[in-house]
Nucleic acid binder design. Sequence first.
DNA 1: CCTACCGATCGGTAGG
DNA 2: CCTACCGATCGGTAGG
Lengths: 199, 199
Amino acid sequence: MTDSPTKPRREQIQDAASRLFSERGYHATSMRDLAGELGMQGGSLYAHISGKEDLLIEIVNGAAQQFDEALFSLRDLDLPADAKLREAMFRHITVVADNMESATVFFHEWKHLSPGAYRRVIGWRDTIDDFYRGLVEQGVREGTFRPDLDVKMTAYLILSAVNWSYTWYRPGGSLTPRDVAEGFAATLLSGLRTGGDRP
Amino acid sequence: MTDSPTKPRREQIQDAASRLFSERGYHATSMRDLAGELGMQGGSLYAHISGKEDLLIEIVNGAAQQFDEALFSLRDLDLPADAKLREAMFRHITVVADNMESATVFFHEWKHLSPGAYRRVIGWRDTIDDFYRGLVEQGVREGTFRPDLDVKMTAYLILSAVNWSYTWYRPGGSLTPRDVAEGFAATLLSGLRTGGDRP
DNA sequence: CCTACCGATCGGTAGG
DNA sequence: CCTACCGATCGGTAGG
């Protein structure tokens, strides 16, 4: 939330790129569009960056890093699986909510990265998958989650809930990330049906 | 599954466009790329279509129509909410699974449509939202779903599960759309926790 | 369906 | 950070 009036130019460029790439897509945004947003000429951008893909890499890596930081510290925390699920979903949705634009770019444009950066994203995605699979396994092991759960599919269900939020969540609306995470986690843990609400 | 050897040219173009748009994105696919896939020259495409956006509109409308057809006939079917949820998720995921490429284009590229087509997609999306919200309301009304459910959020959770499948589902893999829908619906209805599995 | 071409625009650079 | 420019490529058209 540091929005000082003297934000470094490079950061201003990055912010504008996030906005334009998320609205129009990476390939549909020209360097001249981007420069225009900042009141400069197209060529002038290259005093600050070395190429268009730099901007995309920075956005995607930044998003990946935020998800990583949010979840990594949770991995070895000594919490029961249900509490850990709630907290993970809260953190995951918070990253999306606090970075709607770069999250959108992340989900839509990472396939357009060149091979090296592309592979890094795949690796990151697998790490996140593993995190949620480990969480489900923990719950089953502890006996709090149903033993018949398909671990991969259950992890995908959780990931669906937290990731898809980039399409509909509106920061500043009536729902906080906490509301969404608690609501989603409650349903995932206890189900839609009337009955066993408290563990 | 009609893959006759004499598929009309226009259809071949549409298929190739779905594939390329889903892999590279709409703006990153050139008409010459597309023509090359079919062994023709760039300009020759315009004997069959009137513009690049035609192809995108056709893909997006086709996908929207498939979702519509799958769900619309369910709306007034006399089924309890839980059975209807299972069936809706099955049909929804089946559309995604049977049309992985156009589903991907649909979710990623509809924002690049010109105003008219854009508005139609918004309208369609709202219809789908309403369908799932109505389903949740029905369950609450019938007393089978928890009365404290937030209808909108619950509908978003269901939509997350079925829509996000375009990112991970692999046709021909070990999971059928039926497996996924049944697994997801079981967890959504009864929860991850051990305990009240049967209603 | 091809050849040949249109004006526009692209990402990026040189030189200041 | 600007001016002026590069070669490449874009979507699309004319005329056959």
